[in-house]
Write a protein that binds this DNA or RNA. Structure first.
Lengths: 150, 150
DNA sequence: GTTTGCGTTGGAGTTCACTCCAGGTCCTAC
DNA sequence: GTAGGACCTGGAGTGAACTCCAACGCAAAC
């Protein structure tokens, strides 16, 4: 169901990667033009979450068909991969928004973006270290229980 | 609970560091008899969380002074250490309750407790593996940004 | 060409795990 | 004996991150 493998996805919405196809139907196989359902399937976010993120400004420039349906591009999927990484490593949405803002603001924010990601990496490392310690404790507990099994 | 194993907790709570004084005051150094505030300080949970956990049945048999104040014991602190480990490794409260129930129900539940902890350990391992992968992705992102720094 | 289903919106509701509050009692120190 | 702090209760409130809903339009498939 890579979506609309058909002659007219309904207008284009063309989006960026847009194929350099000739005539009518454009983004059939072209990179991009994923419906929200397809995008959800591919990104691992739910459709609701995608809409929610768009409202928050975490996702930008989502194209629309003439009838108002969203069409996500491969760039979006890539960006969603970044968001997923950040979210799944525990970054709060608010900080993701800051990052998205920076990403939107041009190359002069790259330094800030690095700083933000570095800070986050440090936090992740700490969480991982803590997790390792707690996991060991857990193993100890399990071993103990094994040792007293009837 | 061993708690009030004394003539009168009253003066007590005196906390441990306290000298191993002779006469009267008993549970000065005695294991146990921590006020909720002290217990919070030592366990890393907030007082509210301790009360909340007690309501849920996650903490059991908390002794009370004649006027109704809680007195936690060293056993409680140890148990709270377990809860902290479980919580901080992401176990939902409901599952902790199941574990607490098992722990309350006698030795014949040890097998089940092991199973529960093992399941949780597996979940923790998966989360850790995911975290490692995401952290690497993050590092890649940071490196990329470094490479394009103006 | 109609049914089935995917997509739209704004806003309300949910879940989780606390956290706070009011209005009170109690305790320690000065 | 009184001020200030610690603690009590039941219940309400919070914040984060979604998730669901109704009422609708458009799409895809037969």
């Amino acid at each position: 169901m890579n979506s609309n493998a058909n002659p007219q996805v309904r207008g284009g919405c063309a989006r960026r990667g847009g194929a350099r196809v000739s005539s009518v139907s454009v983004d059939t196989t072209a990179p991009g033009a994923y419906t929200i359902g397809e995008c959800a399937r591919r990104s691992g976010f739910s459709m609701d979450t995608l809409r929610y993120y768009e409202r928050l400004g975490l996702i930008d420039d989502v194209a629309r068909t003439p009838t108002g349906q969203r069409r996500f591009s491969d760039e979006h999927l890539e960006w969603l991969g970044v968001l997923k990484c950040l979210r799944d490593t525990g970054m709060p949405v608010e900080q993701m928004c800051r990052f998205a803002d920076l990403a939107r603001s041009g190359d002069h924010t790259i330094g800030e973006r690095i700083a933000l990601l570095e800070d986050h990496r440090v936090a992740v490392d700490e969480r991982m270290a803590d997790l390792v310690a707690k996991r060991d404790y857990l193993l100890g507990k399990i071993d103990y229980y094994r040792s007293v099994l009837p």
